[in-house]
Design a binder for these strands. Structure first.
Lengths: 197, 197
DNA sequence: AGCATAACTGACCGATCAGTTAGTTTTTAT
DNA sequence: ATAAAAACTAACTGATCGGTCAGTTATGCT
């Protein structure tokens, strides 16, 4: 791993766990054993470092999901929906720093004045919503999903799952203990009520 | 309004919109037309000011909900559930600064080492979950709500509603546009499927 | 080897911030 | 009226931080 990559990795962890303002460039530098001026050599400002972190998180998320869907096959839309929710929760555990970062307010505030930031966030959330929507549409075709607006329902499912992950990351209650209930709720939310599967 | 209350109000707004670290005591002071030392006269440190803000938000939320339930009466549990969700969304609009503050990570981080902070947050979230749970239990008694775990379902409904409010506050998508869909989803999630109401 | 360029660093700077102090003004009680 | 207490303030301090710069070391090409 190059020094630049090391810095990016350290910055991801620090921005995620401590926030933007609470993370100093000296901290990022010392975590990689470099001088603080070295960080400024690779990234011209703290904001640019943050944008690079966010962009790399975006790439990571998109790559992880496309890899998951490349391997996994589903027999119907409802199963795909449940699989996606499961994978979302799995990812929120194995790549906790990504979701911690996305659950901070700073990125969204920066997005209001910075196009690169806004685009990274849009790409990330479109990735999530598109996948949920795709599962719902497929389920409506194969009959496993009931009559509903796929886009809006996808947004509400994302709200639920993302809200749960956030509560877990805030130590308010454990998402794991709610897993079975979540799947049941999603099923009641979306499944075709007139068909037993 | 006393100067102390003015400071508390200004601090609530600033902590909510800009965050803890990004808000300076000088900023809080100048917003109320006071000298910065005056803020330290009323609140011995920045952290204590934040804790006072959080505690006042807690009091406000509990008061608003008890006022709502003092006025409103419901014919069954499902109606109470829908009313609570509506009121949650209404409050998230009219007291946006409260929810912005609760959607920041700082309070939850502070809660890990500060009991007062942890208790304020617990009181707030218990207030929310207890009300949802109460509606679900009542609905199971009167037959409007189906067979499900009231506590766990209450947590999932809070995840959904709170997640939606957060997405709205982050300018990702508008909660208002999803209102009808949200109510429909909650109904599918919780309503007794064997009974038409 | 020689050289250009990329990678890296120590020392420094101006700005900002939380918090202190010593003192002044205002309010309250008798 | 006046003394005590509460409310308030200007001026300051030490520490931290983002960013710069001049100079050094490492790398790759011919």
């Amino acid at each position: 791993m190059s020094k630049k990559e090391e810095i990016l990795k350290a910055a991801t962890l620090l921005f995620a766990t401590n926030g933007f303002k609470e993370t100093s460039m000296t901290e990022v530098a010392s975590m990689t054993g470099a001088a603080s001026a070295t960080v400024f050599y690779h990234f011209k400002s703290k904001e640019e470092l943050f944008l690079s972190v966010l962009s790399s998180v975006k790439d990571g998320i998109i790559e992880e999901f496309s890899h998951y869907f490349g391997e996994k096959k589903f027999t119907n839309g409802l199963e795909m929906l449940e699989g996606t929710v499961s994978f979302y929760l799995y990812l929120a555990g194995s790549r906790a720093e990504w979701f911690l970062l996305l659950h901070r307010y700073y990125p969204y505030k920066l997005a209001k004045e910075n196009n690169a930031c806004r685009h990274s966030l849009e790409d990330i959330y479109n990735c999530f919503v598109d996948i949920f929507e795709k599962a719902l549409v497929q389920g409506q075709t194969d009959g496993s999903i009931g009559k509903l607006s796929p886009r809006k329902t996808a947004l509400l499912i994302l709200s639920t799952v993302d809200g749960m992950v956030r509560f877990k990351n805030c130590d308010l209650y454990d998402a794991g203990a709610l897993y079975n209930e979540l799947i049941a709720v999603i099923r009641r939310m979306a499944a075709n009520q007139n068909q037993k599967i």
